[in-house]
Design a protein around this nucleic acid. Sequence first.
DNA 1: CGACATTGTCTGTTGAAACAGATACTGTTC
DNA 2: GAACAGTATCTGTTTCAACAGACAATGTCG
Lengths: 178, 178
Amino acid sequence: MMSEPTNAISPSVSGLAAEIGKQQPFEVVEEELFLNLLRTTALLNDGTVSVVKDAGLSGPLYNILRILTGFADCTARDGAVFDGMPVTGIAEHMLTREPDMTRLIDRLEKLGFVERARCPDDRRRVLVSPTEDGRRVAHELRPRLEALHKDQLGHLSPEEQSQLIELLHKARARVGEA
Amino acid sequence: MMSEPTNAISPSVSGLAAEIGKQQPFEVVEEELFLNLLRTTALLNDGTVSVVKDAGLSGPLYNILRILTGFADCTARDGAVFDGMPVTGIAEHMLTREPDMTRLIDRLEKLGFVERARCPDDRRRVLVSPTEDGRRVAHELRPRLEALHKDQLGHLSPEEQSQLIELLHKARARVGEA
DNA sequence: CGACATTGTCTGTTGAAACAGATACTGTTC
DNA sequence: GAACAGTATCTGTTTCAACAGACAATGTCG
């Protein structure tokens, strides 16, 4: 009948299968692994998104600002001048593939967090730099995000944490191979 | 200067930091862990999305169809009739939180993969069922996705796979707590 | 039974993502 | 130096996602 599907979980179905109310256990362990990744990341990421949203940013937007601010700070520490970073350079440093960097940077520019300048050496390029406002916001968000991550993941032991990092590194090793 | 940021990686910066061209190693291991999760999942998910796109579906759309087809098949195996699943019921089984189920189901309906019916017992509810077309598409995609996942993650040993699943399960244990 | 809160779904609207094609500039080859 | 291919970014357009509020049906309490 199933007009009202029960949420009763058979005892043999555990972990993710129980969480998402899956009736049958997984047959292919690689599928179970992938779905675990998807769910875990989605849940954790929701927290991050809600933090950066306070500053009017989305996940990718903060990502860009983080990259630019990181580079600018790093350059400043060396006593050098940061002229900005080309759009494609930013794209290479992103955590997630973003197919429309131009519009993302448009939005950051409209928020007053970055500014653009043409590269004098190669006038096809646009050099993007964080404004003072942008750096300030990035510096305000960073500790809040670190606290969130510690809150979300601090119950794992240091061994578990490094083990997980190592396994994730290995898990993505095959993407992009022939 | 930095008009052309170098991609040279200092030898002490390894793993994810190297991949995304981060100059400084991570200071907070929980942040490193989160970013590893984000990147790994994004890379693997890209593959999945490109598979389901062949059927005209997005990730969440396939997720819904998978849930409905799973329930329908499971019910049929028991010799019972599947009357459909209410929208909120589907939402509870989703891997990722989706705030606009109505529109997602609209799209599936327009594609001819699901159909709606009012619940006679509670006329607020809408019961969603997969059409024959929808079930066929889901059954065609499933082996392709399993093959993809094996291809992406099959190089991990069974021990590593179950270890990773266990660690992911633990990693998301804290979300949603007080 | 009438008021009221709750639940389940839908609609309106705004903002963001995705894809394709366009434009502008550079380096190379003849 | 003219043609060509390649690179870097932008624009036009379509589709999708998100939030808020609306609507409709049900349950509850006096």
